[in-house]
Nucleic acid binder design. Structure first.
Lengths: 349, 349
DNA sequence: AGCCGAAACTAGCGCGCTCCAGTCACGCGG
DNA sequence: CCGCGTGACTGGAGCGCGCTAGTTTCGGCT
């Protein structure tokens, strides 16, 4: 068995459903040159209104669609942004949803590539580059700093939601420290003192949130109550943390601050199933305000990041890099703000 | 100033991002023809092992990546499959994750396009076609039958997880009827009689599951206990249904069969928060076995669809259509099987 | 020696499109 | 009458690659 198959006839043109019409077909039908059709389709001046009309009519009749690949190839600029995201992360999904309109506004098209368990971020990024993305938007990438830097040297890159100072790329993110701090301030204001933090390890944003938690606790004179449980940005990590707390036998904290919403939801589920009342017995606060946090049955208190604006800035940063408007290296940070919902409340005596 | 610089032959710019290296650059560096480099990169026979080695070395040094757009253009076949999915649907995410390896196996590349609130499926599909997808894989599309049919006439199409008989496309899905039926059989076997179904409206698979529920109830002599609550394939719909049941004042059913996992989770959350014990007071069963169903804190009884196989068949169907191996119109159905987890149990006297 | 065929490699066209440098007709002032 | 500007349109050279039809080299066989 030869592992590589020789190209056979069947590997060539697919059974033509009817050959895809090209610009030349449209041009021929109207009786003009291809160049004119091209002009019309790009909406550029240089064609009379009547001709435009006829071109569009002929195109519609033939079912012609401009071929992106050829267009990309011919044009210096491809106007395509590659977006890397983690399919399982609802916050990333929110980001992607917000990036679409932002990109459209500036005339960019999007190509998505998902990082999934069987397909790591490196591969996903290669695919994006291969598909002729002009620039990359990386949503909370988890590969090492050095790798991100190496990629950024090859292609304009914008990292969203991860702190990565000093690399030749733009960073768009929220101020994690004040966001996390406001959570602690809020909880302390409600009378909480035993506030546990379930951390997200080295996940994007997690170190900052952890540090802000510690700082805030100290500044409230609660240094001795600091407790960080190592976790992750997943439901599974949250539920494990909750089970661990329940299994300890000692009293539960009155509040838990999770490093992101998924983790918070894991906590929430395990606690409520164990009969622990939220927020009466334990307040739970997440981070990100991903769309699931807002669902009525979750109703999670969390920290909202301004996702549409984040997306907008990210696309604009990419555009600026591409236009050569400035060097890469911008560090854009947005305010984020506490969003009080139903999973948090005062300490009940 | 003209941004378009003429290409100078001797452009060996160490300035990192000056210009993307092309195959010609690699060829020049190695001292062979472009054609040979092309052979090497396609893994085709016709190059000596030493040459291969040198080509790869030079490519790595230059940071060369084959340009998909050009490759697509030059090759009759683009070998790209366009995948439409709903970013917020975890089951779709599972599917996408499974499609990646399946596509790779047959030598296809993937382009994803997400249907999101601000960007409907039509637009997403146009984008896929524009990016030169040879065929479309539509994960549970929600646009009208006629629209899907119209698209399928333009481009080979495979629909996953939606019943759509008689259209010029392939369908890959699971047997929803037996799957749903096994749920009812199982619940009845545990002693349940008051089994409510929260339906998914006209969402892919939902009508079949609803019908199977009704049929199964009747065949168990429970025709008078049939109760369908109109819903959707979202958490929100599940939670609404749960709230509605709680608000009614009359006794809860002993079991609820939701049309998909997300809906089931909505139910689950509202019930547990209201202090209703699952499964002691109410058993809850979902459908799809999306990855969230398996999370330890959810531990949802559900119906597993064989996602890897579904993905595999879908890709193969697309491949077959493209190769002209057969006409479109295949209807592939897989077995699905009940997966008993922690949210279901016997009726307690 | 002479022939042959496979292995290794090359030349060059063409994929569908964009873009630049024209060409053509037409009107107008000198 | 010519020159000249302007709007409408055309020709053709690429973009980076794949692929067919070669050419050259070389070892083995009669």
């Amino acid at each position: 068995m030869n592992p590589r198959k020789p190209r056979s006839q069947s590997d060539r043109a697919p059974a033509p459903r009817s050959r895809k019409p090209t610009m030349a077909d449209v041009a021929a039908k109207v009786g003009v040159s291809r160049a004119l059709v091209s002009l019309v389709f790009r909406g550029q001046p240089g064609a009379s209104p009547q001709t435009r009309e006829r071109v569009f009519a002929a195109a519609a009749e033939l079912g012609y669609r401009p071929d992106m690949a050829a267009r990309l190839l011919a044009r210096g600029r491809s106007k395509v942004l590659g977006v890397l995201f983690t399919a399982r992360n609802p916050y990333h999904v929110d980001l992607v949803e917000a990036i679409y309109p932002a990109a459209e506004e500036l005339g960019y098209d999007l190509v998505l590539s998902a990082a999934v368990p069987t397909r790591d971020e490196h591969k996903a990024i290669e695919a994006l580059i291969g598909h002729r993305s002009e620039a990359l938007l990386l949503c909370g990438p988890t590969i090492p700093d050095a790798d991100v830097t190496a990629i950024a040297r090859r292609i304009p890159t914008v990292v969203v939601g991860r702190h990565l100072p000093g690399a030749p790329l733009d960073v768009v993110t929220s101020y994690d420290r004040p966001g996390a701090r406001s959570v602690i301030d809020y909880l302390v204001g409600l009378g909480h003192r035993d506030i546990v933090h379930v951390s997200g390890g080295s996940r994007p944003g997690a170190p900052e949130r952890r540090r802000a938690y510690r700082d805030a606790m100290r500044s409230h004179g609660l240094a001795d109550r600091i407790r960080v449980i190592a976790g992750n940005h997943t439901e599974e990590a949250g539920s494990e943390a909750a089970r661990a707390m329940l299994a300890e036998g000692r009293p539960l904290p009155t509040a838990v601050f999770a490093s992101n919403d998924q983790c918070a939801i894991g906590l929430l589920d395990v606690f409520t199933r164990a009969g622990v009342k939220v927020p009466e017995q334990v307040s739970i606060v997440g981070y990100d305000d991903s769309h699931i946090a807002g669902l009525s049955h979750i109703d999670l208190t969390t920290v909202r990041q301004d996702v549409p604006r984040l997306a907008h800035l990210a696309v604009r940063a990419a555009d600026e890099q591409l236009r050569g408007a400035r060097e890469a290296g911008a560090y854009l940070k947005l305010e984020s703000k506490l969003l009080v919902r139903g999973t948090s409340g005062p300490v009940l005596a």
